[in-house]
């Protein structure tokens, strides 16, 4: 429950969910369904008024203190006075990695997000998509098993978004991270996830959880297959039944 100008707002209500290691779980729903709040609760950035929440067997705050997750925000949030490499070094500096270790990790995550050679650029010299990739590299740099992503591609155009979705999917398969991914886009949710959590608003609830039937190997044109269309339809139906389309 969060205080608001007109009293308290129940942002999330009776949410019951377990995310397994190595899963890619998307949270989809209209604005105000509490998907971002849910992610912030997991991250220990907000605190629930009730209920139980465990991250790797720890409380969210303990998980945050043990740096158990990397968080990617809607905006890249790169510090403008640091180069891309120094931006990626930010969490490493705070966590006390040695200089040499920092250098290795920066090089590794830069190539992971295909930004080799851009380390010395300043953020304004990069496109929006590249900035967001740099912010993903930053979240990956300290080897947290869990990646929390809050509409990371929401501000990008569809062409860039398609490409980044493909890259993120590859990255997830290669690194075997657990990813919780908040999105507005049905296509994105279906393409990326092993499980799709459909949420409904006021108060935020989990309306349905849909298991993906898509194969592990997903080229971008998998989105033209009937199987993909069926899943997307299912998600859309779920959103409709959860009154997500009532204005």
């Amino acid at each position: 429950m969060f205080p608001s100008a007109d009293g308290e707002v129940r942002a999330l209500d009776r949410v019951n969910l377990e995310i397994g290691r190595g899963e890619f779980v998307s949270f989809i729903g209209p604005s105000g369904c509490g998907k971002t709040s849910f992610l912030r609760l997991v991250a220990g950035l907000e605190h629930p008024t009730g209920g139980e929440l465990e991250v790797n067997g720890l409380s969210p705050d303990e998980a945050r203190q043990s740096r158990a997750y990397g968080y990617v925000f809607q905006a890249a949030g790169l510090l403008p006075w640091r180069t891309i490499a120094r931006n990626i070094a930010l969490p490493l500096e705070i966590m006390g990695y040695s200089r040499a270790e920092q250098k290795d990790r920066i090089a590794r995550v830069l190539s992971l997000v295909e930004l080799d050679g851009f380390g010395r650029k300043f953020p304004w010299q990069l496109s929006g998509g590249m900035q967001q990739r740099a912010s993903i590299a930053r979240a990956l740099s300290f080897d947290a098993d869990l990646l929390l992503m809050d509409e990371p591609f929401g501000a990008l155009d569809e062409i860039v978004r398609d490409r980044l979705n493909g890259q993120l999917r590859d990255l997830w398969k290669r690194t075997e991270k657990t990813i919780a991914f908040v999105t507005h886009s049905i296509l994105e949710a279906v393409y990326l996830s092993t499980r799709i959590v459909v949420m409904s608003p006021r108060p935020g609830r989990i309306h349905r959880v849909i298991e993906s039937t898509l194969p592990d190997e997903r080229p971008l044109d998998i989105r033209d297959t009937p199987e993909f269309a069926t899943l997307a339809h299912e998600v859309r139906e779920g959103l409709r039944a959860g009154h997500s389309y009532d204005a």
């Binding site: 991250a43 950035l45 945050r64 203190q65 740096r67 997750y69 990397g70 968080y71 925000f73 809607q74 905006a75 949030g77 510090l79 006075w81 930010l90 969490p91 500096e93 705070i94 966590m95």
Partner: peptide, 25 residues
Amino acid sequence: RLQLDLLRTYHADRSQAFRKLRWPA
């Protein structure tokens, strides 16, 4: 808010937040 939250996700303390974020900003 985003930059401050970012540092919180790294569990940065106040002096780190000052040196790495507030001062340069």
